[in-house]
Nucleic acid binder design. Structure first.
Lengths: 192, 192
DNA sequence: GAAAAACATTGATCTAGTTCAATAAAATGG
DNA sequence: CCATTTTATTGAACTAGATCAATGTTTTTC
């Protein structure tokens, strides 16, 4: 019986089924209510988490105190401040649950133990970082080369269920536009 | 006698001096004239290169055929399409020299051989990817939260010598603004 | 060292997206 | 279930930055 995490692992690396329980033992399941802050700017990130339920945002705070959302992590995504976690140094980002959420988390120690027992998983973590990198590249490109309209269309393709789950102004923040303008985009679109 | 590459390595990982020549043997020095295309969209990236001289840009092409510059790599930076190189799959980015440039390059094979002889270098490559990731995060944030003015000021801090070395319209592309507007920003600034 | 190409500046006009303020509608919680 | 808070919509005025077109200035190239 495969958990979502094992399914995710399997698409990165081939493992014998015998390893399954062994791997799961290294992860600690945790639940958080909505609006729980998991990491504040300047703190050291103590977890790398695989989301099994809920929705979590990572964001920067700008000079006026407004959030700029970097990523949404929903079911089957990883969430962490990678640089802060890996080197145990202060983070520049914040992490907060949007919905009540469940994570399977690794600490620096449990990750190290996991990898020394199952070194093949190194590949999975490498791919995870690579995917994040590619995602940021594409988003930077989109923010420079595309209109808000098109960015929103791409967002809907990538996260079809999020608009039903989270407040619209968070999507505006992710897209890099004002909530008012997103409201107008949606109105325009519905007229067609 | 330390090469720039060895200096770079040393700030990531501590190695015995005995290893120095051994490490360098895995890198192949190559020179390119200016405006040489090292990677085209859709090709598989066959190198990871440490820049010892010159300046190289990585970029996407937008729907109108215009470049959007993602990074400049000058002396002591790494340049590659990380995802394409690691997994040997088609790239989404292009890489091209701006100035005549010299690189020390690794191929997938030579990198593997290097790492199996000097596994401590894994850490350096991990840090390299992490730094790229953090750089993209910050740039995305800047493009959403800051005015062109401030982005340009940050650019000047980060790359103080580039404005003297490369055409201004490439900087505009990197900043996500039109060349005309960058010209106006500079004029405004010089008036103060 | 002349001709061509690439690059930079400037002005005029336009627009995608912001900001502010007011109102309406949902969601939340005691 | 009422009161409060959070969210969404709409209008009006504004602005950062784009686009187009013309001119001037460097850099290349042969």
């Amino acid at each position: 019986m495969d958990t979502p995490l094992l399914k995710y692992i399997h698409q990165c690396v081939t493992l014998s089924t015998a390893d399954h329980e062994g791997i799961m033992e290294f992860f600690q399941p945790i639940q958080y209510p909505k609006k729980t802050i998991l990491l504040n700017e300047g703190e050291i990130c103590k977890f790398e988490g695989f989301v099994t339920k809920g929705c979590i945002k990572t964001y920067f705070i700008d000079q006026n105190g407004f959030e700029v959302i970097l990523t949404f992590a929903t079911e089957n995504w990883w969430v962490s401040d990678i640089a802060s976690f890996q080197d145990q140094r202060p983070s520049k980002t914040c992490i907060e649950t949007i919905e009540a959420s469940e994570l399977l988390i690794l600490t620096p120690d449990s990750k190290e133990a996991l990898l020394s027992k199952y070194p093949d998983l190194e590949r999975m973590f490498r791919l995870m970082v690579q995917r994040h990198l590619a995602a940021y590249q594409e988003r930077l490109f989109g923010n420079i080369a595309l209109t808000a309209d098109k960015r929103y269309a791409l967002f809907l393709e990538k996260y079809p269920d999020l608009p039903q789950r989270i407040p619209q102004h968070l999507i505006a923040s992710y897209l890099g536009i004002s909530p008012e303008f997103l409201s107008r985009l949606r109105k325009r679109k519905s007229k067609k």
